[in-house]
């Protein structure tokens, strides 16, 4: 799984000279959210997009997810457009807030994308159980979202995103609203899930430590206009324990990412 180690991955997402411009809504100059982005994301790779606010990291994620159209340039995913991938229901998205349906139980929340995919009921029930066991919430299946803590709600969101077995998991600052302990637990869980499911994960965050701990590669974006200012390989072997956060290697990488931040 390690690009720098020489095991070149099959590219899954190819971002080719992507520019996204938002028309200004008060008559000023249009805002260049992303400018000439070129990036290849390998199959099964865990990649983080980091940068200060306004650097376009979320816009990049949204463009991959076909929630935002490119102004110029293109994104190709396995040779298809993001829209085609979306229509095939191959994306799993996790937002900053859990975005759960409060009128549905945990089980039925996880089930929802499978209903839309039209999977048979028997399959759905088994899959919901499997997903909830994976995120450690099997016992809470019959609860309603508001009865769960923030961390648990976010796990339900992850279970829901993975329920339809997507090719690509897109995560937009999923843990930024959580406390430090919950966050660390979820980091470990996410890495375990990733190892089991072998999904390609694109992870947006403004937390450098988080990005380095989780990723194979960290892409640093700089603002105005949003562009790639550095791509840093994380050569820390896996599986990674929380203790690596104290290692010199880890801290050197964090410092390297931070310095490319400051160069902005």
């Amino acid at each position: 799984m390690n690009i720098a180690a020489g095991t070149k991955l099959e590219p899954e997402i190819i971002i080719d000279d992507l520019t996204v411009v938002f028309p200004s809504n008060n008559g000023g100059d249009p805002i260049k959210a992303l400018k000439n982005i070129n990036l290849e994301i390998g199959q099964g790779e865990f990649i983080s997009l980091v940068g200060p606010s306004g650097c376009g990291k979320t816009t990049l994620l949204r463009t991959i997810a076909d929630l935002q159209n490119p102004t110029t340039g293109s994104i190709s995913i396995r040779g298809l457009t993001p829209k085609q991938i979306r229509m095939e229901k191959k994306f799993g998205i996790v937002f900053q807030s859990p975005v759960l349906y409060d009128w549905r139980t945990v089980r039925r929340n996880v089930c929802m994308p499978m209903e839309i995919k039209g999977l048979p009921k028997k399959h759905r029930t088994a899959r919901v159980t499997e997903m909830l066991e994976m995120v450690g919430l099997y016992k809470f299946g019959k609860q309603y979202p508001h009865e769960l803590s923030g961390g648990m709600q976010q796990r339900v969101g992850i279970a829901r995103a993975l329920a339809i077995d997507p090719e690509i998991l897109l995560m937009d600052e999923p843990f930024s609203a959580l406390d430090e302990f919950t966050k660390e637990k979820l980091h470990e869980d996410l890495l375990n899930i990733w190892r089991q499911t072998k999904k390609t994960i694109v992870f947006v965050t403004h937390n450098i430590q988080e990005a380095v701990f989780l990723s194979d590669r960290v892409v640093v974006l700089s603002p105005h206009p949003g562009r790639v200012s550095a791509v840093i390989d994380v050569n820390i072997p896996r599986p990674r324990a929380l203790s690596i956060k104290r290692s010199a290697e880890f801290n050197a990488l964090v410092a390297e990412v931070r310095s490319s931040f400051e160069g902005v």
Binding site: D66, R86, K89, F91, I93, F95, S97, W103, P113
Partner: peptide, 24 residues
């Protein structure tokens, strides 16, 4: 975000109404 979630799994208009808008 709830609309975008439905959009991301290519829900039809009918599904968006029955599974999201009407219950909300």
């Amino acid at each position: 975000e709830k609309h975008e979630l439905m959009h991301s799994i290519a829900a039809t208009k009918y599904e968006i109404y029955t599974k999201l808008l009407i219950p909300s």
